[in-house]
């Protein structure tokens, strides 16, 4: 059975709106330990001040961070999420394009609270 064209349109649109983000992983000292292959082991220049400021704080006082950043390519949502491998704290920096909703109604396909 093939999917109804309307369902195809919905799925296609959701997929396009959820672009794959850039993900960088840092250790507790703020050293980059994993990065997108195309990034050549460096975070975007526009992101460097924010990341430097974040890791300048003591480890115990680094909460999750969420911010909008104006970058050369447009506006991006930046999240820094602490996580643990059971031994030490690590941090994921997730960058994705930020789209502003035109009205308060939920984005189709969005999650209940979020979308």
């Amino acid at each position: 059975m093939t999917m109804h064209p309307v369902a195809q349109v919905i799925v296609s649109d959701i997929t396009q709106r959820r672009s794959v983000p850039l993900v960088y992983l840092f250790d507790s000292a703020g050293e980059l330990i994993a990065w997108p292959p195309a990034s050549q082991r460096a975070i975007p220049v526009d992101l460097q001040p924010l990341v430097a400021m974040y890791f300048a704080a003591p480890g115990a006082t680094r909460p999750p961070l969420r911010e909008l950043l104006e970058m050369r390519e447009g506006r991006f949502s930046v999240q820094i999420t602490p996580y643990s491998d059971g031994v030490e704290e690590r941090y994921a920096v997730i960058i994705e394009r930020f789209a502003v909703r035109a009205r308060p109604s939920a984005e189709p396909g969005q999650l209940s609270p979020a979308p």
């Binding site: 220049v45 924010l50 104006e70 050369r72 506006r75 789209a99 609270p113 979020a114 979308p115």
Partner: peptide
């Protein structure tokens, strides 16, 4: 050029409503 963007109240709401952190 890039730089941090200070969120206004509406944008904070938008951001929170747009996505839960994955």
């Amino acid at each position: 050029m890039g730089g941090s963007h200070e969120l206004g109240p509406n944008e904070v709401d938008q951001l929170a409503a747009l996505r839960e952190p994955p």
